[in-house]
Amino acid sequence: MKKATAIFEEGHHRWYAIARDPMRPSFLIDTNEYLVQSGHDALLTDPGGMEIFPTVFSALAEVVDPTQVRQIFASHQDPDVISSLALWIAFNPNIRCHISRLWETFIPHFGGDKQTLIGMPDEGKELHVGVAQLQAVSAHYLHSSGNFHLYDPTAKILFSGDVGAALLPEDDNALYVKDFDRHIAYAKGFHVRWMGSNQAKRDWCERVSKLTIEQLCPQHGAIYRGADVMRFINWFDELKVGMA
């Protein structure tokens, strides 16, 4: 089963990582979901695929009242990111889902309608969770053509979607990266293949390196923290991507 772990806490402002499911069937890629809570309001990033809804929902319900989840942030359109949307809507028909405007009419194939989906403009936008102000940071072509990350300046956390993802061995269930050099070997192939544009990557590294980030939280694999964040950005900047 998945488990929600607090990765940031300051007063009523919290981030939880719902990470790593050792019970998950091996044919499903493992995903991390993050919950941002401020007071009685919560937002869930990349809620995951339909098949893992029961385990995400249960882990989340351990730490917050699930009715507080009023917003979903979908970094992009992939099934491992957002195919559970229909179930979240069944649970709460008033839930809203932020996603690139490019995907607004595609996502209703998973669930939702005009009311549910809030298309974000290419330049990104500010999102509010309780009193917390978050920023949707554009990351187009990394890997999706309409792609966003989510930055929380108070928590100094960047949710980076598939950027920073690592396909780790089954027995490697640590929440945080322990040994960067060892870890990055599991991230390399993924980035070379899945990230489509060196130009977009350069631009992202430039912008993101100006933000204060203490934790870089990808949708797959372990979280980078402290010096490993800049280590990752520099590594990514050097990497040639978009190759099969």
Partner: peptide
Amino acid sequence: QLNLLTRAGQHTSHDR
């Protein structure tokens, strides 16, 4: 969908 909601309900009971 019903199956998945039911499975979610096995671990957590919630009115909604």
